[in-house]
Simulated scan of single mutants.
Amino acid sequence: MSTVDVRQLPDLSSDYPLSPAQIAQYRETGHILLRGVCTPEEARVYREVILDATMRNNRETRPLEERDTYGKAFLQVMNLWSGDEGVKKFTLARRFGHIAAQLMEVDRVRLYHDQALFKEPGGGHTPWHQDQFYWPLDTPSTVTMWMPLVDIDATMGSMSFADASNANGFIPTPNEISDESEQFFGDYVAEKGFKVSGGGAMAAGDATFHSGWCLHRAPGNTTQRVREVMTVIYYPDGTRIAEPKNEFQKADHQVWLNSIAAGQVADGPLNPVVYL
C-alpha cells in the first residue's frame, strides 16, 4: 500500500467537455487523441503513485529475451485501483468517466478495469489486436483511455489505429495478441484499405480513447527510457454480460465480472459507476 496522503492528490473531478466535432470524429474513426486530459502537474503527481503501485505489484522478472512476443511488449499490471487508494483516485476519476460517457454517448459509465502498460527499454512491438476479444460484454460501446505518464513518441511505442476498423465489431480470429494476430490483422488492414493514423508524440497527461473493436498496435521501444502508460476501460451502465466466447473471456468473466450469469447486468463489486 502506498504511503501517499490521498487527500493531497490533485482532484480529477472537473469536466473535460468535448465538441460535437470531436464526438463525430470518434464515431467515425473509433478513436481520438485528446490533449491535456491531465495537466503536467497532475500527470507528474499521479505518475509517482502509479509507478510505485506498478513496481510493487509487478511479477514479471524474466529478461526480455526469455519472453514471448506478448511478454516483450510491456509489463502489464491490472486492477491497481483495488489495492491502492492513490491509484483508485486516478482510475475512478470523474473527469475520465465523463469523457468516456461523451464518446459512448451515454449518461452513466462503469469501470471494467485499469492496467499499467510499461514498455521497457528494448521492449518489443505490441501486435495488432482488438481489445474486446478479451471481454465478455454484450455491447459495441466500450472505450479505453490510454494515457502516457511521461512524454513519448513513436520511438517509445506510441499507438497507431486503423481508422473505422471498429465499424463491424468483432473480426473473427482465434488469435490473442501475438505474432499471429500481427500477421492476420496486418493483412486485414491492408486488404480493407484502412487508413492507419496516430503514432505521434504525446505529452504526459495527453490521452487517446479508442473503441474496444478498433484495431490498434504500437511499435517497440528503442529508447533507454520506460514508456509508462496507464489505461482505464469503460462501458455503459446497464450493459449485460455476454456468454464467454473464448478462454480469455471465461477468465475475465470470473476475475473482473464476479462470475455473474450471462445475460445479467454487469454490475459486480469491481465495476463501480464512475460517471452519472
Rank of each mutant, 00 (worst) to 15 (best):
Q132A: 12
T142M: 15
T126P: 00
T139K: 06
D114G: 10
S178Q: 02
I152N: 01
N175R: 13
P148I: 08
F161P: 02
P127A: 04
A164C: 11
H129G: 05
P127D: 00
D131L: 09
F170D: 05
K119F: 07
L137P: 03
N168Q: 14
D138V: 03
F170N: 08
D114T: 10
S141N: 14
P140R: 13
Q132R: 13
W135P: 00
A116N: 05
D151C: 05
A162Q: 02
S158V: 08
A154G: 09
F133T: 07
H113G: 06
P140N: 11
D131C: 09
G123P: 03
V143F: 08
Y134W: 10
P148T: 09
P148M: 03
M156S: 14
N166L: 04
G157E: 02
N166R: 08
A164N: 14
L149P: 06
G124P: 03
W146Q: 03
I152T: 11
K119H: 06
I171M: 00
E176G: 14
P121F: 07
W146L: 04
D153C: 08
M145R: 04
T155I: 07
L117M: 15
A116V: 11
P127Y: 05
D138I: 03
Y112W: 15
Q115P: 01
Y112Q: 12
A162L: 09
H125T: 12
F161G: 02
N168I: 10
W135N: 12
I177K: 10
Q130L: 10
E176S: 13
D151H: 10
Q130M: 09
G169Q: 02
P148C: 08
M145D: 03
I177A: 13
T126H: 12
W128R: 06
S178H: 03
A116T: 14
G157F: 09
I177V: 15
M145W: 01
G122Y: 01
L137Q: 04
N166M: 15
A164W: 09
W146D: 01
G157M: 07
G124Y: 09
V143L: 09
L137D: 02
G169W: 09
G122E: 01
D114L: 07
D151F: 07
D163F: 09
P148F: 08
T155V: 11
Q115F: 14
P172R: 10
D138P: 03
A167Q: 15
P127R: 08
Y112C: 12
G157H: 05
I177G: 01
S141I: 11
Y134M: 11
E120S: 11
S165D: 07
T142C: 11
Q115C: 10
G124W: 13
D151Y: 06
E120K: 15
F170Y: 14
G169H: 07
F161K: 06
G169D: 03
D151M: 04
D151S: 08
P172V: 05
I171C: 04
D153W: 12
M147Q: 09
D114N: 11
G122A: 04
V143Q: 01
